[in-house]
């Protein structure tokens, strides 16, 4: 199949949406944290833990939606830990986030190994199936939409909700104000600490759901290092999106398009080009996106600045 023909296959576009889903959740989560002024580098570990926790719940007999909820709650707990350390204690957000990533990922591998000892093939669960198979009848995009599972639709819904909350509600205004100038927010009678806690906890829950998509929809089993830097890609996508949910969706789709396209080129170009060059593409693209957008990015003004009452 030529490079051009690939573009017109439903398979390509169906996998674009599938690859984009964890990135959408992760990017929205990181975006929400950063909008209130907290950089959450725990994302990579939180996604790993979400992938493990959701999978483990379903493996132990819970249904898929309960599994997603378990992942979200675990993510929220790690978010609370990050908030205690960075919001209440005002510790370095970089180092704390990395510490959370190291802890959450090693903790999830440990728990996984406790429950599932080493064996030949990892055990599997029955993952999410297509949510609306009836859509296949629509000409053109029908097969693409019909192939998607429920969490993908949830991700797109989450974009709309977050975009509306941030741009159109008093809560959104309060959140954005906390990220721009927490002292001004406090002067308006808002509680910047509570707002930061809430946003970091909700954002981390979103990240964990993104991780859970990997084990509960994209694949059907968990294995260590499966998140593969997707969390860091999300952090780059937040900058690319200039901290706006709509553009985050666009960035995630664009990114997923390149990823899905390279996967297909890999199979059609065969051994002519080393496969590692294709695998490098997502990371290279993220760096390129960062460099392009950094010049005109409007960073939340209070990002990475701890807020302490009564001090400037």
């Amino acid at each position: 199949m030529s490079m051009w023909e690939i573009l017109f296959t439903a398979g390509l576009w169906a996998s674009v949406l599938r690859i984009a889903t964890p990135l959408i959740f992760g990017t929205l989560g990181a975006l929400l944290c950063e909008r209130v002024g907290v950089l959450n580098l725990g994302i990579e570990g939180i996604m790993t833990f979400g992938a493990m926790a959701g999978w483990l719940a379903v493996f132990n007999g819970a249904d898929l939606w309960t599994g997603l909820a378990v992942a979200a709650i675990c993510g929220g707990l790690f978010g609370a830990l990050h908030a205690v350390l960075t919001v209440s204690l005002g510790l370095s957000q970089h180092v704390t986030g990395l510490g959370i990533t190291l802890f959450a990922s090693s903790f999830s591998y440990y728990l996984f190994r406790l429950v599932v000892p080493v064996q030949g093939t990892p055990p599997t669960i029955e993952p999410f199936g297509p949510a609306f198979p009836g859509l296949a009848g629509i000409p053109g995009i029908g097969p693409v939409l019909a192939a998607q599972t429920a969490p993908t639709w949830l991700a797109i819904g989450a974009v709309l909700v977050l975009a509306w909350v941030l741009a159109r509600t008093p809560l959104g205004l309060a959140l954005r104000m906390t990220g721009e100038n927490p002292h001004a927010a406090e002067a308006q009678g808002l509680d910047p600490i509570a707002l930061r806690y809430g946003a970091v906890i909700c954002g981390s829950a979103l990240m964990a759901v993104g991780g859970a998509f990997l084990t509960m929809s994209a694949f059907n089993s968990f294995f260590p290092t499966m998140v593969q830097g997707r969390g860091w890609v999300c952090i780059a996508l937040v900058v690319f999106s200039t901290w706006r949910p709509g553009r985050a969706l666009l960035g995630a789709l664009l990114f997923a398009f390149f990823d899905a396209y390279q996967l297909r080129l890999q199979t059609s170009l065969g051994k002519a080009v080393p496969y590692q060059l294709f695998l490098m593409m997502p990371y290279v693209l993220s760096i390129v996106a960062l460099v392009i957008m950094s010049r005109r990015a409007r960073v939340p003004q209070a990002l990475m600045q701890p807020f302490r009452r009564g001090s400037r």
Binding site: L41, H94, Q228, G229, W232, V233, I235, A236, V239, M280, Y283, V284, S286, I287, L290
Partner: peptide, 10 residues
């Protein structure tokens, strides 16, 4: 932070 992290994978 992000660029050095991504470079690890590359």
């Amino acid at each position: 932070v992000v660029t050095t992290l991504l470079l690890n994978f590359i």
